[in-house]
């Protein structure tokens, strides 16, 4: 009984949020300019060469788009291809803990696109086969199970869990009615539907994490 990961997609087909728990193969960071928005998840953003940890934590939060904790005013991390000249001169240690674990063979941006493609095709297939407005709920393979919950506003909550768990749709609904409404929809600093950045923020991440860790299926 395990929960592997959570993806949230908006109605423009963009992955706006990602979080994982017991994932054996770490997601490979997305390639630069690979179509992943900023502020989706810190672990999978294109690798930038910022070495000062205070800069990194400040950058993880969309609230601090104009943070000056490092003494340099940096606008946003929208341009990973051109890190600041001052920071470039230091030798950049690549994320230590993450790189030692085996990574999946797909970069994260491609993986997110595949997940979205699969749920969209299956959703259409189920609708076509049933002839009604019936939703796709989940599928199961020999090692994992994918659950989908789609809101009326077109947000798709996708969760990957162990293959013998029961339906986790209620959990996805809880994430939507709880943390998502509270810390994303009611958060004036998160620009929804912007097509330019994700919805990641510290409160949402911590609150979702608490909800998932409190589940009985979570070991």
């Amino acid at each position: 009984m395990t929960i592997y990961s959570l993806y949230i997609f908006d109605r423009h087909c963009n992955c706006v949020y990602y979080q994982d728990w017991h994932r054996a193969k770490r997601p490979k960071p997305a390639g630069e300019g690979g179509g992943i928005l900023p502020a989706v998840a810190h672990a999978i953003s294109p690798q930038t060469h910022y070495t000062d940890p205070s800069v990194q934590t400040a950058f993880a939060s969309p609230r601090n788009t104009l943070s000056s904790t490092s003494g340099v005013v940096v606008a946003v991390n929208n341009e990973p291809a051109s890190p600041l000249p001052g920071l470039l001169q230091m030798p950049a240690p690549q994320q230590p803990a993450v790189s030692q674990q085996p990574t999946s063979e797909l970069p994260f941006d491609e993986e997110a696109k595949l997940v979205y493609g699969v749920i969209l095709s299956l959703r259409n297939m189920i609708k076509k086969l049933s002839g009604r407005d019936e939703q796709f709920v989940n599928y199961r393979t020999s090692t994992y199970k994918l659950h989908l919950y789609e809101t009326l506003s077109g947000y798709k909550f996708v969760m990957l869990s162990d293959h013998n768990t029961d339906s986790l749709r209620f959990v996805l609904r809880q994430i939507y009615t709880g943390p998502f409404l509270e810390y994303v929809v009611r958060n004036p600093l998160v620009s929804m539907n912007s097509r330019e950045r994700g919805i990641d923020n510290e409160y949402f991440r911590a609150s979702t994490d608490r909800l998932i860790r409190g589940l009985s299926v979570f070991p």
């Binding site: 049933s130 019936e134 796709f136 599928y139 199961r140 393979t141 994992y144 994918l146 990957l160």
Partner: peptide, 24 residues
């Protein structure tokens, strides 16, 4: 879809989708 689902596994290698569920 069956081919893609076998590549999305978060842990090791996986088979393709075995059961796909709708609401009814």
């Amino acid at each position: 879809i069956h081919a893609i689902t076998s590549r999305l596994s978060p842990t090791g290698s996986s088979s393709g989708a075995q059961v796909i569920e709708g609401e009814t």
